[in-house]
Computed example of a mutant assay.
Amino acid sequence: MTVLVVGASGATGRHLVNQLLLKGNKVKIIVRSKGNQSWDEMNNLDIYTASILELSDSELMTYTADCDAIASCLGHNITFKGIYGQPRKLVTDATKRLCQAITKHQPKSPIKYVLMNTSGNSNRDLNEPISFAQKCIIGLLRLLMPPHVDNEQAADYLRTEIGQNDKYIQWVAVRPDGLIDENKVTEYETYPSPTRSAIFNAGKVSRVNVGHFMAELINDNNLWNKWKGQMPVIYSKTAVSNSEK
């Protein structure tokens, strides 16, 4: 299976790339710079150095050719420039352009698109219950934090524009709760909706677990069929268990 990953050099993206390679996938990545990664020594990996939004349509068509799946771990740096500078719609615009490229290819079978999102974004297909206090905080985030709006709009594009019955694209938007760094994959649990408040009682999930789940979605058709067209929330199991004691 050939998988294109954007946002591969990020804290979660690099785990996704490693998990995909461990599963024997051919992986293509688009990164702004190679940084300190040792990917040059890995087989089945093609590295393209570019800014995803600066690629021409023809270049993007080339990079997405022959892909069975595309995964996005794009996000904004937690700096003043990263939060308030351009591009403010990095995740949304990349999602739109990648989906448009898929459609132009007119693949014989649907391409899997996996978007890393956030538990702070509700799945409005399910009318998820949110407390009044959390609604107020989310409202402030929409006013003050452009990255939150970007995450919402990227998922909304998949929900409303691609939808559930697109001929060329199937999608899953993965919503991790509070991200932490760990070296090894541990047990984790996934739910259709948050089981706790993302604002006032956030859980934890390791970035490597998120990368593992995204890779499993791409490679395991049974798991994919369970979650396609949905926005599963992921927690590390220990975090969930401790909150319930």
Score class of each variant (00 low, 15 high):
Val3Arg: 00
Gly7Met: 03
Ser9Thr: 08
Gly13Ile: 01
His15Gln: 09
His15Gly: 02
Leu16Phe: 03
Leu16Trp: 00
Asn18Glu: 11
Asn18Tyr: 04
Leu20Trp: 01
Leu20Asn: 00
Leu21Lys: 03
Leu21Met: 05
Leu22Asn: 12
Lys23Met: 01
Gly24Gln: 02
Asn25Lys: 04
Lys26Thr: 00
Lys26Phe: 05
Lys26Trp: 02
Val31Asn: 00
Arg32Trp: 02
Asn36Lys: 15
Asn36Gly: 10
Ser38Phe: 02
Ser38Gln: 09
Trp39Pro: 01
Asp40Pro: 00
Asn43Pro: 02
Leu45Cys: 05
Ser51Asp: 15
Leu53Met: 08
Leu55Ile: 02
Leu60Pro: 03
Leu60Tyr: 04
Leu60Ala: 08
Thr62Tyr: 02
Cys67Tyr: 05
Ile70Ala: 08
Ser72Met: 05
Cys73Lys: 04
Gly75Cys: 06
Asn77Val: 07
Lys81Ala: 15
Pro87Met: 03
Lys89Leu: 11
Leu90Pro: 02
Thr92Met: 04
Thr92Lys: 01
Ala94Phe: 01
Thr95Gln: 09
Thr95Phe: 03
Leu98His: 04
Cys99Leu: 10
Gln100Ala: 13
Thr103Cys: 09
His105Lys: 12
Gln106Met: 13
Gln106Thr: 10
Gln106Trp: 01
Pro107Asp: 06
Pro107Tyr: 04
Lys108Thr: 13
Lys108Ile: 08
Ser109Tyr: 10
Ser109Phe: 08
Ser109Met: 09
Pro110Ser: 06
Pro110Met: 11
Ile111Asp: 03
Lys112Cys: 03
Lys112Met: 13
Lys112Gln: 15
Val114Trp: 00
Leu115Asn: 03
Met116Leu: 10
Asn117Gln: 09
Asn117Leu: 09
Thr118Asp: 06
Thr118Val: 11
Ser119Ala: 15
Gly120Pro: 02
Asn123Phe: 14
Arg124Ser: 10
Asn127Phe: 11
Glu128Ser: 10
Pro129Met: 05
Ser131Thr: 14
Gln134Cys: 08
Ile137Thr: 10
Leu141Thr: 06
Leu141Tyr: 12
Arg142His: 13
Leu144Asp: 04
Leu144Phe: 12
Pro146Ala: 12
His148Gly: 08
Val149Gln: 12
Asp150Gly: 04
Glu152Ser: 11
Ala154Tyr: 04
Leu158Ile: 09
Arg159Ser: 07
Thr160His: 15
Thr160Ala: 10
Gln164Phe: 09
Asp166Glu: 05
Lys167Met: 06
Ile169Cys: 05
Ile169Gln: 01
Val172Gln: 04
Pro176Trp: 02
Asp177Ile: 08
Gly178Phe: 08
Leu179Gln: 08
Ile180Glu: 12
Ile180Ser: 12
Asn183Leu: 13
Lys184Arg: 07
Thr190Cys: 15
Tyr191Ala: 13
Tyr191Met: 15
Ser193Asn: 13
Ser193Thr: 15
Thr195Ala: 13
Thr195Lys: 15
Ala198Gly: 15
Ala198Asp: 14
Ile199Trp: 11
Lys204Ala: 13
Phe213Ile: 04
Met214Pro: 08
Ala215Tyr: 02
Leu217Ala: 07
Leu217Val: 11
Asp220Leu: 11
Asp220Tyr: 05
Asp220Ile: 06
Asn222Ala: 14
Asn222Phe: 12
Asn225Ser: 14
Lys226Phe: 15
Gly229Asn: 07
Val233Phe: 06
Val233Glu: 08
Val233Asp: 10
Ile234Tyr: 05
Ile234His: 06
Lys237Gln: 14
Lys237Phe: 13
Ala239Gln: 09
Val240Cys: 06
Ser241Ile: 05
Ser241Leu: 11
Asn242Ala: 06
Asn242Pro: 01
Lys245Thr: 03
Lys245His: 06
